[in-house]
Design a protein around this nucleic acid. Sequence first.
DNA 1: CAGTTACGTAACTCGATGGTTAACTACAGC
DNA 2: GCTGTAGTTAACCATCGAGTTACGTAACTG
Lengths: 107, 107
Amino acid sequence: MGAFEALADPTRRRIVELLADGERDAGEIASYFPVSRPAVSRHLRVLREHGLVRSRGDAQRRIYSLDAAPLAELDEWLAGYRTFWSNRLDALETQLRRSRRQRKETG
Amino acid sequence: MGAFEALADPTRRRIVELLADGERDAGEIASYFPVSRPAVSRHLRVLREHGLVRSRGDAQRRIYSLDAAPLAELDEWLAGYRTFWSNRLDALETQLRRSRRQRKETG
DNA sequence: CAGTTACGTAACTCGATGGTTAACTACAGC
DNA sequence: GCTGTAGTTAACCATCGAGTTACGTAACTG
């Protein structure tokens, strides 16, 4: 559940939002933020270490793309709390989620 | 989206999980953790300040209960990323979630 | 090969955070 | 009105995290 830690920082959250739109090289990412490049570089490292982001090198550029797996895990955690703000429709959602998971386990 | 910050700490996450099962007084909460009472008290304060928890005083006891509103907000944020790990069932879920939201807005 | 471009790492500063113990507040019971 | 119990606040300390500047490294470009 380390995604929580990674996403606690607003800059990192915005990087994730940015990459949701499509992959970007480090320079472009940095250009969106008022902090220095090294700072962004470290944020990217944290995101990478938490599995939220992957980098593929192209010449001297580093192209970053989103890896949503940890977000899915987070979603699973949250699923346990949906009953707290749910109505009938949400109950159905839960049902669907459960069946999906089961199907995954079954093969 | 301050819930991320509050939930970055594992102890606070476990407190939330604990309260999902039902309300508890501060003493009982503290008994579940290896840290001192004041430490737990501060965690509870952080959770309170982030709206994740509410305290109702009963005599000299303070009874804490979960407030899942910030979790719902978090869920909304995550919803924007479900497409990244979704399949047909998830698409249906999203559809359901959308209709629920719309219904809430409409009346 | 020299220079420029694109990134990352290193070393450092500094405020935030989480932990502790000690002191304070509020209530119940004798 | 003391005494014990439940909990929070205060003061303090150590560590962590995010920011900065300076430097290192890899690749393209003339």
